[in-house]
Protein backbone atom coordinates (compact mmCIF):
# COMPACT_ATOMS: atom_id res chain seq x y z
CA UNK A 1 0.00 0.00 0.00
CA UNK A 2 1.41 3.36 -1.07
CA UNK A 3 0.03 6.66 0.10
CA UNK A 4 1.25 10.04 -1.12
CA UNK A 5 -0.24 12.84 0.94
CA UNK A 6 -0.24 16.22 -0.74
CA UNK A 7 3.41 16.01 -1.70
CA UNK A 8 5.39 18.86 -3.20
CA UNK A 9 8.86 18.56 -4.62
CA UNK A 10 11.25 21.26 -5.79
CA UNK A 11 14.59 20.38 -7.38
CA UNK A 12 17.71 22.18 -6.07
CA UNK A 13 17.72 24.35 -9.22
CA UNK A 14 14.33 25.75 -8.21
CA UNK A 15 12.10 23.81 -10.61
CA UNK A 16 8.92 22.69 -8.89
CA UNK A 17 8.30 19.22 -10.29
CA UNK A 18 5.42 18.20 -8.02
CA UNK A 19 2.90 20.65 -6.69
CA UNK A 20 0.47 18.86 -4.44
CA UNK A 21 0.07 15.22 -5.42
CA UNK A 22 -2.13 12.89 -3.41
CA UNK A 23 -2.57 9.33 -4.55
CA UNK A 24 -3.20 5.95 -3.00
CA UNK A 25 -2.13 2.68 -4.58
CA UNK A 26 -3.48 -0.48 -2.95
CA UNK A 27 -1.53 -3.71 -2.69
CA UNK A 28 -1.93 -5.75 -5.87
CA UNK A 29 -3.02 -2.85 -8.03
CA UNK A 30 -1.71 -2.24 -11.56
CA UNK A 31 -1.32 1.41 -12.32
CA UNK A 32 0.04 3.46 -15.20
CA UNK A 33 1.21 7.01 -14.65
CA UNK A 34 0.91 8.91 -17.90
CA UNK A 35 1.60 12.39 -19.19
CA UNK A 36 3.93 14.46 -21.27
CA UNK A 37 7.70 14.48 -20.73
CA UNK A 38 8.36 16.82 -17.85
CA UNK A 39 4.93 16.39 -16.25
CA UNK A 40 6.52 14.96 -13.10
CA UNK A 41 5.88 11.23 -13.62
CA UNK A 42 9.40 10.01 -12.89
CA UNK A 43 9.79 12.50 -10.04
CA UNK A 44 6.66 11.06 -8.44
CA UNK A 45 7.74 7.43 -8.59
CA UNK A 46 11.23 8.26 -7.33
CA UNK A 47 9.46 9.24 -4.12
CA UNK A 48 8.15 5.72 -3.63
CA UNK A 49 11.56 4.14 -3.03
CA UNK A 50 12.88 7.22 -1.28
CA UNK A 51 15.34 8.36 -3.98
CA UNK A 52 13.61 11.70 -3.58
CA UNK A 53 12.02 12.94 -0.37
CA UNK A 54 9.11 15.36 -0.61
CA UNK A 55 9.86 18.98 0.27
CA UNK A 56 6.33 19.13 1.66
CA UNK A 57 3.84 16.39 2.53
CA UNK A 58 4.74 12.74 3.04
CA UNK A 59 4.84 9.39 1.32
CA UNK A 60 3.94 6.23 3.23
CA UNK A 61 4.97 2.80 1.97
CA UNK A 62 3.19 0.05 3.87
CA UNK A 63 2.58 2.54 6.63
CA UNK A 64 6.15 3.83 7.04
CA UNK A 65 7.14 7.33 6.01
CA UNK A 66 9.89 7.36 3.37
CA UNK A 67 11.61 10.12 5.31
CA UNK A 68 12.38 7.70 8.13
CA UNK A 69 14.13 4.91 6.20
CA UNK A 70 17.04 4.64 3.77
CA UNK A 71 16.70 3.98 0.05
CA UNK A 72 18.40 0.62 0.55
CA UNK A 73 15.86 -0.42 3.18
CA UNK A 74 12.88 0.78 1.14
CA UNK A 75 14.19 -0.95 -1.95
CA UNK A 76 13.62 -4.32 -0.29
CA UNK A 77 9.93 -3.66 -0.75
CA UNK A 78 10.04 -1.39 -3.79
CA UNK A 79 11.86 -2.63 -6.91
CA UNK A 80 12.61 0.17 -9.35
CA UNK A 81 13.59 -0.67 -12.94
CA UNK A 82 15.14 2.31 -14.67
CA UNK A 83 14.42 3.31 -18.24
CA UNK A 84 17.85 2.62 -19.67
CA UNK A 85 19.46 -0.72 -18.67
CA UNK A 86 22.87 0.72 -19.59
CA UNK A 87 22.61 2.97 -16.55
CA UNK A 88 22.99 0.03 -14.22
CA UNK A 89 24.83 -2.85 -15.92
CA UNK A 90 28.46 -3.06 -14.89
CA UNK A 91 29.34 -6.67 -13.98
CA UNK A 92 31.35 -9.20 -15.93
CA UNK A 93 28.57 -11.74 -16.16
CA UNK A 94 24.80 -11.68 -16.18
CA UNK A 95 24.84 -13.89 -13.09
CA UNK A 96 26.95 -11.35 -11.16
CA UNK A 97 24.69 -8.56 -12.30
CA UNK A 98 21.59 -10.27 -10.96
CA UNK A 99 23.36 -11.14 -7.71
CA UNK A 100 24.57 -7.56 -7.11
CA UNK A 101 21.52 -6.32 -5.25
CA UNK A 102 21.20 -9.57 -3.27
CA UNK A 103 24.74 -9.11 -1.96
CA UNK A 104 23.94 -5.53 -1.01
CA UNK A 105 20.98 -6.82 0.95
CA UNK A 106 23.17 -9.41 2.70
CA UNK A 107 21.37 -12.50 1.42
CA UNK A 108 23.11 -15.79 2.28
CA UNK A 109 25.23 -17.51 -0.40
CA UNK A 110 22.78 -20.34 -0.95
CA UNK A 111 19.86 -17.99 -1.11
CA UNK A 112 21.64 -15.77 -3.66
CA UNK A 113 22.28 -18.76 -5.86
CA UNK A 114 18.68 -19.86 -5.61
CA UNK A 115 17.23 -16.43 -6.31
CA UNK A 116 19.56 -15.79 -9.27
CA UNK A 117 18.57 -19.09 -10.87
CA UNK A 118 14.93 -18.29 -10.30
CA UNK A 119 15.16 -14.76 -11.77
CA UNK A 120 17.16 -15.84 -14.82
CA UNK A 121 14.64 -18.55 -15.50
CA UNK A 122 11.74 -16.13 -15.06
CA UNK A 123 13.07 -13.88 -17.82
CA UNK A 124 14.43 -16.73 -19.98
CA UNK A 125 18.04 -15.64 -19.56
CA UNK A 126 19.45 -18.91 -18.22
CA UNK A 127 21.53 -19.50 -21.36
CA UNK A 128 23.31 -16.16 -20.84
CA UNK A 129 24.27 -16.85 -17.21
CA UNK A 130 28.01 -16.59 -17.87
CA UNK A 131 27.80 -14.03 -20.69
CA UNK A 132 28.86 -10.42 -20.29
CA UNK A 133 25.80 -8.19 -20.19
CA UNK A 134 27.55 -5.84 -22.63
CA UNK A 135 27.50 -8.54 -25.32
CA UNK A 136 23.72 -8.83 -25.28
CA UNK A 137 21.20 -7.07 -27.52
CA UNK A 138 19.16 -4.11 -26.28
CA UNK A 139 16.08 -6.17 -25.50
CA UNK A 140 18.13 -8.77 -23.63
CA UNK A 141 19.92 -6.10 -21.60
CA UNK A 142 16.54 -4.75 -20.62
CA UNK A 143 15.57 -8.21 -19.40
CA UNK A 144 18.78 -8.52 -17.37
CA UNK A 145 17.99 -5.20 -15.69
CA UNK A 146 14.51 -6.49 -14.93
CA UNK A 147 15.86 -9.78 -13.55
CA UNK A 148 18.37 -7.94 -11.37
CA UNK A 149 15.50 -6.15 -9.65
CA UNK A 150 12.96 -8.95 -9.48
CA UNK A 151 15.61 -11.26 -7.99
CA UNK A 152 14.94 -10.03 -4.45
CA UNK A 153 11.20 -10.43 -4.99
CA UNK A 154 9.98 -6.95 -4.04
CA UNK A 155 6.25 -6.51 -3.34
CA UNK A 156 6.04 -3.34 -5.38
CA UNK A 157 7.57 -3.13 -8.87
CA UNK A 158 8.02 0.21 -10.61
CA UNK A 159 9.00 0.36 -14.29
CA UNK A 160 10.07 3.68 -15.75
CA UNK A 161 9.25 3.90 -19.48
CA UNK A 162 9.56 0.14 -20.04
CA UNK A 163 8.54 0.27 -23.71
CA UNK A 164 10.99 2.87 -24.98
CA UNK A 165 13.14 1.50 -27.79
CA UNK A 166 11.36 -1.86 -27.71
CA UNK A 167 9.94 -3.39 -30.87
CA UNK A 168 6.44 -4.77 -31.20
CA UNK A 169 7.25 -8.32 -30.11
CA UNK A 170 9.38 -7.22 -27.17
CA UNK A 171 6.52 -5.00 -26.03
CA UNK A 172 4.08 -7.86 -26.30
CA UNK A 173 6.33 -10.11 -24.18
CA UNK A 174 6.78 -7.32 -21.67
CA UNK A 175 3.02 -6.82 -21.48
CA UNK A 176 2.42 -10.48 -20.75
CA UNK A 177 5.17 -10.43 -18.15
CA UNK A 178 3.78 -7.40 -16.36
CA UNK A 179 0.29 -8.87 -16.31
CA UNK A 180 1.73 -12.10 -14.90
CA UNK A 181 3.56 -10.21 -12.13
CA UNK A 182 0.35 -8.45 -11.27
CA UNK A 183 -1.71 -11.63 -11.12
CA UNK A 184 0.88 -13.02 -8.70
CA UNK A 185 -0.24 -10.26 -6.35
CA UNK A 186 2.50 -7.71 -6.90
CA UNK A 187 1.72 -4.01 -7.04
CA UNK A 188 2.90 -2.83 -10.44
CA UNK A 189 3.36 0.81 -11.38
CA UNK A 190 4.50 1.79 -14.86
CA UNK A 191 5.48 5.26 -15.99
CA UNK A 192 4.86 5.67 -19.68
CA UNK A 193 3.55 7.79 -22.51
CA UNK A 194 2.93 4.78 -24.72
CA UNK A 195 -0.84 5.04 -25.11
CA UNK A 196 -1.33 1.93 -27.22
CA UNK A 197 0.61 -0.16 -24.72
CA UNK A 198 -1.58 1.06 -21.88
CA UNK A 199 -4.70 0.54 -23.99
CA UNK A 200 -3.83 -3.13 -24.29
CA UNK A 201 -3.07 -3.57 -20.59
CA UNK A 202 -6.11 -1.61 -19.38
CA UNK A 203 -4.75 -0.74 -15.92
CA UNK A 204 -5.76 2.07 -13.60
CA UNK A 205 -4.44 5.30 -15.15
CA UNK A 206 -3.31 8.51 -13.48
CA UNK A 207 -2.80 11.43 -15.84
CA UNK A 208 -0.24 14.00 -14.78
CA UNK A 209 0.07 17.58 -15.96
CA UNK A 210 2.58 20.09 -14.64
CA UNK A 211 3.27 18.35 -11.37
CA UNK A 212 -0.33 17.56 -10.54
CA UNK A 213 -2.60 14.58 -11.03
CA UNK A 214 -5.26 15.66 -13.49
CA UNK A 215 -7.37 12.51 -13.47
CA UNK A 216 -7.27 9.01 -12.02
CA UNK A 217 -9.40 6.02 -12.99
CA UNK A 218 -9.70 2.96 -15.26
CA UNK A 219 -7.86 3.28 -18.58
CA UNK A 220 -10.98 2.89 -20.71
CA UNK A 221 -12.64 5.80 -18.89
CA UNK A 222 -9.63 8.12 -18.76
CA UNK A 223 -8.12 7.56 -22.21
CA UNK A 224 -11.47 7.93 -23.95
CA UNK A 225 -12.15 11.30 -22.35
CA UNK A 226 -11.16 13.75 -25.08
CA UNK A 227 -10.82 16.75 -22.77
CA UNK A 228 -8.58 15.02 -20.26
CA UNK A 229 -6.38 13.48 -22.92
CA UNK A 230 -5.98 16.82 -24.68
CA UNK A 231 -5.08 18.57 -21.43
CA UNK A 232 -2.43 15.95 -20.69
CA UNK A 233 -1.07 16.36 -24.25
CA UNK A 234 -1.30 12.70 -25.10
CA UNK A 235 -2.83 11.15 -28.18
CA UNK A 236 -5.89 8.95 -27.51
CA UNK A 237 -5.63 5.27 -28.55
CA UNK A 238 -6.53 4.67 -32.20
CA UNK A 239 -9.54 2.54 -31.35
CA UNK A 240 -10.91 5.31 -29.17
CA UNK A 241 -10.36 7.77 -32.04
CA UNK A 242 -12.38 5.52 -34.35
CA UNK A 243 -15.25 5.31 -31.90
CA UNK A 244 -15.19 9.03 -31.36
CA UNK A 245 -15.54 9.59 -35.10
CA UNK A 246 -18.56 7.26 -34.96
CA UNK A 247 -20.10 8.88 -31.90
CA UNK A 248 -23.35 9.60 -33.83
CA UNK A 249 -23.80 5.86 -34.35
CA UNK A 250 -24.84 5.25 -30.75
CA UNK A 251 -21.89 2.98 -29.96
CA UNK A 252 -20.29 2.81 -26.51
CA UNK A 253 -17.43 5.28 -26.12
CA UNK A 254 -15.27 3.48 -23.56
CA UNK A 255 -13.58 1.06 -25.98
CA UNK A 256 -9.77 1.11 -26.31
CA UNK A 257 -8.93 -2.45 -27.30
CA UNK A 258 -9.11 -4.05 -30.76
CA UNK A 259 -11.00 -7.16 -29.62
CA UNK A 260 -13.56 -5.22 -27.59
CA UNK A 261 -14.06 -3.00 -30.60
CA UNK A 262 -14.65 -6.00 -32.83
CA UNK A 263 -17.17 -7.53 -30.43
CA UNK A 264 -19.12 -4.29 -30.09
CA UNK A 265 -19.34 -3.83 -33.86
CA UNK A 266 -20.38 -7.42 -34.49
CA UNK A 267 -23.01 -7.26 -31.76
CA UNK A 268 -24.37 -4.10 -33.30
CA UNK A 269 -24.48 -5.64 -36.79
CA UNK A 270 -26.23 -8.72 -35.48
CA UNK A 271 -28.79 -6.60 -33.63
CA UNK A 272 -29.72 -4.67 -36.76
CA UNK A 273 -30.27 -7.71 -38.98
Amino acid sequence: MIEARNIHFTYPNGVEALSGVSVEVKTGEFMAIMGQNGAGKTTLVKHINGLLKPTKGEVLVNGTSTKKVSVAKLSREVGFVFQNPDHQLFCETVEEEVAFALRNFNFSKQLIKKRVTWALNLLSLTQYRQTSPFMLSGGERKRVALASVLAWNPDIVILDEPTIGQDHQQKEKLRQFIVQLNTQGKTVIIVTHDVEFVAECNPRVALMVQGKILADGPANKILTNRDLVAQASIVPPQISQIFFELSDQDLPQDIINVYDARDVIIKRLEAST
Binding site: Q238, I239, Q241, I242, E245, L246, Q249, R262, I265, I266, R268, L269, S272, T273
Partner: peptide, 26 residues
Protein backbone atom coordinates in the same frame (compact mmCIF):
# COMPACT_ATOMS: atom_id res chain seq x y z
CA UNK B 1 -15.24 -12.85 -38.17
CA UNK B 2 -16.68 -12.38 -41.63
CA UNK B 3 -17.18 -8.62 -41.56
CA UNK B 4 -15.28 -7.07 -44.44
CA UNK B 5 -14.70 -3.38 -44.88
CA UNK B 6 -14.43 -1.99 -48.39
CA UNK B 7 -10.96 -0.49 -48.01
CA UNK B 8 -8.02 -1.34 -45.81
CA UNK B 9 -7.75 1.53 -43.31
CA UNK B 10 -4.33 2.99 -42.44
CA UNK B 11 -5.52 5.41 -39.77
CA UNK B 12 -8.53 5.98 -37.47
CA UNK B 13 -10.27 8.39 -39.86
CA UNK B 14 -10.23 5.86 -42.70
CA UNK B 15 -11.35 3.10 -40.35
CA UNK B 16 -14.24 5.21 -39.10
CA UNK B 17 -15.31 6.01 -42.66
CA UNK B 18 -15.30 2.37 -43.72
CA UNK B 19 -17.09 1.29 -40.56
CA UNK B 20 -19.75 3.93 -41.06
CA UNK B 21 -20.49 2.43 -44.48
CA UNK B 22 -20.98 -1.00 -42.94
CA UNK B 23 -23.01 0.28 -40.00
CA UNK B 24 -25.37 2.46 -42.04
CA UNK B 25 -25.82 -0.11 -44.80
CA UNK B 26 -28.39 -2.06 -42.85
Amino acid sequence: KGVSLKRIPMNPEEAARSLREVLTLD
